[in-house]
Amino acid sequence: MRVFPVYAPKLIVKHARIFLTGVIWVKDLGRLEFEKGRFLLPRKSLPKVKQAILELNELIEAQN
């Protein structure tokens, strides 16, 4: 598990694309899981977490 002390979308996306499957922890967002290079949306999450995951997945799609 990698810990990101700040929310840096480009760096987080780079990590997810390299490792494809895993878990990261982002300060103020908490634990985020990714599989096959995409972030998974938890069943229950705060609106800011949901927005961050959608933003990260959009960045991943834009890079493909």
Rank of each mutant, 00 (worst) to 15 (best):
V26F: 01
E33S: 15
S45R: 13
L20G: 11
R31P: 03
L41P: 07
L29Q: 00
L20N: 10
K10C: 13
Q51E: 08
E35Q: 13
I24R: 00
D28M: 12
V23C: 11
I53E: 00
K48L: 08
A16V: 15
Q63E: 14
Q63P: 09
E58P: 00
G22M: 04
K10H: 12
D28Q: 14
E33Q: 15
K36I: 05
V6A: 05
G22P: 02
K36V: 06
T21K: 14
F34E: 00
F4L: 02
G22K: 02
V26I: 08
P9M: 04
G37Q: 06
P47F: 08
R31G: 03
A16M: 05
S45Y: 10
N57M: 03
K27P: 14
R38V: 11
R2H: 15
Y7D: 01
E35D: 13
A62E: 13
E33M: 14
V23P: 02
P47I: 11
L46K: 15
G37A: 10
H15K: 02
G30I: 01
M1R: 10
K48C: 07
N64R: 04
D28N: 15
E55G: 05
F34A: 00
F39G: 01
A16Q: 02
L20M: 12
P42G: 10
I53L: 06
K10M: 11
V26H: 01
K14S: 11
I18Y: 15
G22T: 02
P47M: 13
K50W: 08
R38D: 03
N57S: 02
G22D: 02
I60F: 08
E61L: 09
A8P: 01
E61S: 11
Y7P: 01
R2F: 15
A8Q: 09
G30W: 02
I12N: 01
L40W: 05
H15Q: 03
H15F: 08
Y7I: 02
S45H: 12
L20V: 08
V6I: 12
I12W: 00
P42A: 09
F34T: 00
F34G: 01
L41V: 08
F39W: 01
L46Y: 13
I18H: 14
L54P: 01
G22F: 03
P5T: 09
V23Y: 13
E55V: 07
V3R: 08
V23G: 03
W25C: 14
R38Q: 08
K10W: 12
A16C: 09
A16T: 11
A8V: 11
P5M: 15
W25T: 04
L29P: 00
A52F: 04
V6L: 07
I60W: 13
K36S: 12
L11E: 13
A16R: 00
I53N: 00
I24W: 01
E61M: 09
V26M: 01
V13G: 04
R2C: 15
K36E: 13
Q63W: 13
L41R: 10
A62Y: 11
F4I: 03
D28L: 11
K27L: 14
L40E: 04
L56F: 03
N64M: 11
K36M: 12
E61A: 12
K44N: 07
K44A: 07
N64C: 11
I12Y: 01
F19Y: 11
G30M: 03
K44F: 08
D28S: 14
N64K: 05
E33K: 15
L32Y: 02
P5R: 15
E55L: 08
A62P: 05
Y7N: 02
L20T: 11
P42H: 11
K36Y: 09
I12E: 01
L29M: 09
A62Q: 13
P47R: 15
E35R: 14
R38W: 11
L59P: 00
R38Y: 09
P5N: 14
R17G: 09
N64W: 04
R17M: 11
V6C: 14
I12P: 00
N57P: 00
E35N: 12
Y7V: 01
P9F: 03
A52R: 09
V26Y: 01
K50E: 05
Q51P: 03
E35L: 11
R31V: 07
E55C: 06
K44W: 10
K36D: 09
V3H: 15
L11C: 11
G22N: 02
V23R: 15
E33V: 14
G22C: 05
D28R: 15
E58I: 10
E35W: 12
N64T: 10
V49Y: 07
V23K: 15
E61G: 08
K10N: 12
V23A: 04
E58K: 12
E33F: 15
M1E: 15
E55R: 07
L54Y: 12
R43V: 06
L56A: 00
L56P: 01
L56H: 00
G30A: 04
G37T: 07
P42T: 09
P9K: 04
P42M: 08
E58D: 09
R31A: 03
L40P: 04
K14R: 13
H15S: 03
N57Y: 01
E35M: 13
G37Y: 05
G22L: 03
V13A: 13
M1P: 15
N57V: 02
H15N: 02
F34M: 06
K48R: 12
K10A: 13
R38T: 08
W25I: 05
L11F: 05
K50A: 05
L40K: 13
F34I: 05
P5Q: 15
L40F: 06
F4G: 00
L20D: 11
V3Y: 15
I60M: 13
F19R: 07
L29H: 03
A62V: 11
